[in-house]
Simulated scan of single mutants.
Amino acid sequence: MQAAAIERKHAAIWRTLADLSDPEIPVVSLRELGILRDVRTGADGMPEVVITPTYSGCPAMGQIEDDVCAALAHAGIDARVVTQLAPAWTTDWMSDTAREKLRAYGIAPPQCGSSHDVLTFVRRPLSREVVPCPQCGSHHTTETSPFGSTACKSMYRCLDCLEPFDYFKPY
């Protein structure tokens, strides 16, 4: 297949999957979250859609793969889905649009990502970062549980508006 034809096919796949939403957070697309990593051509010439889970035990990955396959089939595109664990997903891969959509949906977006020094993170386990409330913007919040509605989130509560909210954990 010529390079131009491959490029057109890859572009059609990206267009087909552009608005495919995350099954756990339907206001954000897989591409905006950075889960949809790449469209490439496999060694056998078959197009491959590369997805990377937010963490290796993410229970939504089966649904995400099914949704990608269904969208491709609906568009008449023959391609396979490949789950790639390395490099590991990081919240740094989230687009600014995804962060704003999370906030508008009531989930506090991650304040930082993997670019921070791991040793600093390990040395400061008791000092929590300030997580602004996505409802009222207050910085007067507290973590109520490190376990939120999904494993990639923790539970917080705003001490001003008293609303509970999820915080997308930085990885």
Score class of each variant (00 low, 15 high):
108 A>F: 01
14 W>K: 06
44 D>L: 07
42 G>P: 02
142 T>S: 12
171 Y>K: 12
107 I>K: 03
60 A>H: 06
24 E>D: 15
66 D>M: 14
96 D>I: 07
105 Y>F: 15
112 C>R: 14
144 T>V: 15
140 H>L: 02
72 L>I: 10
53 P>Y: 09
166 D>S: 13
108 A>N: 02
117 D>R: 08
140 H>S: 03
140 H>G: 00
133 C>R: 01
111 Q>W: 00
102 L>Y: 03
20 L>G: 02
49 V>W: 07
51 I>P: 02
103 R>W: 12
43 A>Q: 13
72 L>H: 06
117 D>T: 12
41 T>L: 10
21 S>P: 08
74 H>P: 00
35 I>M: 12
19 D>Y: 02
50 V>M: 09
29 S>W: 04
32 E>H: 06
51 I>D: 10
67 D>K: 11
18 A>D: 11
119 L>D: 14
2 Q>N: 13
32 E>G: 03
25 I>L: 14
130 V>Y: 00
5 A>Q: 12
79 A>M: 08
127 S>M: 09
42 G>M: 08
52 T>G: 03
12 A>D: 13
154 S>V: 03
116 H>A: 13
153 K>D: 01
19 D>K: 09
118 V>I: 12
27 V>H: 05
158 C>S: 02
36 L>A: 10
126 L>V: 10
34 G>S: 11
61 M>E: 02
93 W>N: 09
6 I>Q: 15
42 G>F: 08
20 L>T: 11
135 Q>G: 05
120 T>G: 10
43 A>S: 11
